[in-house]
Design a protein around this nucleic acid. Sequence first.
DNA 1: TCAGGCTACTCCGCCGTCCAAGTATCTAGC
DNA 2: GCTAGATACTTGGACGGCGGAGTAGCCTGA
Lengths: 170, 170
Amino acid sequence: MSSRPLPFDAIAEARRQWESHGWPAPNAMAAVTSIMRAQQIILARVDAALRPHDLTFARYEALVLLYFSRQGALPLGKMGDRLMLHPTSVTNIADRLEQQGLIKRVRHPTDRRTTLAEITPEGREVVEEATRVAAGEAALGIGGLSDRELDRLTKLLRKVRVDAGDFPEE
Amino acid sequence: MSSRPLPFDAIAEARRQWESHGWPAPNAMAAVTSIMRAQQIILARVDAALRPHDLTFARYEALVLLYFSRQGALPLGKMGDRLMLHPTSVTNIADRLEQQGLIKRVRHPTDRRTTLAEITPEGREVVEEATRVAAGEAALGIGGLSDRELDRLTKLLRKVRVDAGDFPEE
DNA sequence: TCAGGCTACTCCGCCGTCCAAGTATCTAGC
DNA sequence: GCTAGATACTTGGACGGCGGAGTAGCCTGA
């Protein structure tokens, strides 16, 4: 990942500087930077755990979505909505997953504009195996937090998502 | 960003499915996914706010670091350590910032291996202006949280960073 | 003094993301 | 039924990030 750990908390230090310069919203700045860094850490860990299965987090997430879906298949557009991905990204991810034989593109029975992504039996196997390893061993990359803390974190971030208009409050 | 908001919380829904399949660590899974979404949301907002200044969050952060540094200059490697960036990314960011005239690459006085990035007067101006807009208006992209909540969030994520070995506990 | 290893940065290639534009298909209104 | 606009996906181009390999310069020890 990176070279050496720092002897101090770089974000706390930046917050101090920020405040002493009289810049606005130091708390928001620290929180934003923390989220960025946490995401980076977690993504790196999860991707590393998934690498033996030839998956990235994005592809794994897509695969899980299909795994959980009623028919094992979803329109690409719907996948994009669920995963909050740009249509282009969905196409890209579907390309790779199809290439790996983990999904199959299928014509929609009535609407010929839309293509369905359908998880293959091999795809199901891979999801189950990857989940055992990635989620089980690494606790999905989020080490030092208790269940209660994880919950608080999720709740706080839920507010951010609601505020961004991801989904309606309640 | 994306097409339409969902009528429900996709992460909560995924958590439910995850649990009902007996998969491990549903709380961790929900927290991880939440962090990913939140990062995506915030990055998009901040980048949008910075776009008029021709900056991305990564470049802005680098510029702020130099702004705050004692000499207004730092070795690229040190910047990577502080910002937790891959050396390649630092090179890339420095390239663009230099191209924009916001920093200048300078030879290190004694060690000819290392190059210093030095913020230019124009760079200082841009940072100040961008900060006023990005941090002031958008509260750096984190809308719906109070100062207390921001603080709790930062503290929780601090644990993640410590656990990842970013810096020593205390 | 000089050989070997370490450090600092850069180049190349891949991945995932976005934007803008293009094509095909559906649907609503006349 | 036909046209205009909406919808669904794909393509091409750009960017930021990472990993790995390469090069240049430093430094230690025999």
